[in-house]
Amino acid sequence: MRHALSLRIGPFGFRIGSDWRAPIETLADLYADYPRPELPDYTVRLEALRPWRRWIRPAMAVSGDYMLPDAAPLPLAQALLAAEMGMNLQLALGARRFLLLHASAVERDGRALLMSGESGAGKSTLATLLAARGWRFMGDEFALIEPETGLAWPLPRLISLKNDGVSAAARVWPGARFGPLLHDTPKGTIRHLVPDATAIAAMDEPVQPAVLLFPRFGAAAAVRAVPPGEAFVRLTQASTNYVALGEAGFAALTALIRGVPAYAVDYPDGETAIAQVEALWPEP
């Protein structure tokens, strides 16, 4: 393709091709500190919807090795979001080496905190706030569980913050680098935050999960222990490839549930959530 870039995020290498130069330059700038893969695992393509749509009313079709048919095209200005969705889709539909959970992850004293929940539950914002308090950022969209070892592997991609999450992150993370402000995207207003150097440097260091959280933003502060049965069901619905992995998926998920205590946490604001996490975090 005319313009292309390869980059590695955690254990996955991506090759991104584009009919336009600008998207690749934006990605190259924001992912400058990320390593290059020896051989990309997946291909993502940002293609003009029609040959003439490269110039006239440019519209971008997102595709790759694995695609959802009839996907809606995106405007050129949202190339960063398109590349992110393209990479997510390759992992969600293609990955087999890890059990993928829709969860953010941070690490402290060699153990991981996983935060699972639908979009809007605040898992990205919480991960950012905890990273600003000294936890090592591992990922804000997918937690990767290695079936053989049960370890959680980092996937420190750009953190996509929505609406007021952007200002919250900017406040606690003054030195952070941000991507462009993207307006009226399918997910509202979005801005991408580049993870800090330690998170990128430690992207190849997996850790043992210690606590599993189901956060919910907006309700009065409350903490409830989640029994294994409920946690199991919630994680099967929060995993994009649990069923595809078959027996390995069952073994990985039951081992995770057996070994890691789970809590449902309602929090009205970031400060409360951080206090709740500190209280739940086991002494080293």
Binding site: G13, L39, D41, R96, R97, A244, G246
Partner: peptide, 18 residues
């Protein structure tokens, strides 16, 4: 085949088995 290729091909066989 190069090591990373072998990993991808093993994954493909695994997927085909499923």
């Amino acid at each position: 085949v190069p090591e990373p290729v072998a990993i991808l091909l093993a994954e493909a066989r695994d997927g085909a088995e499923a």
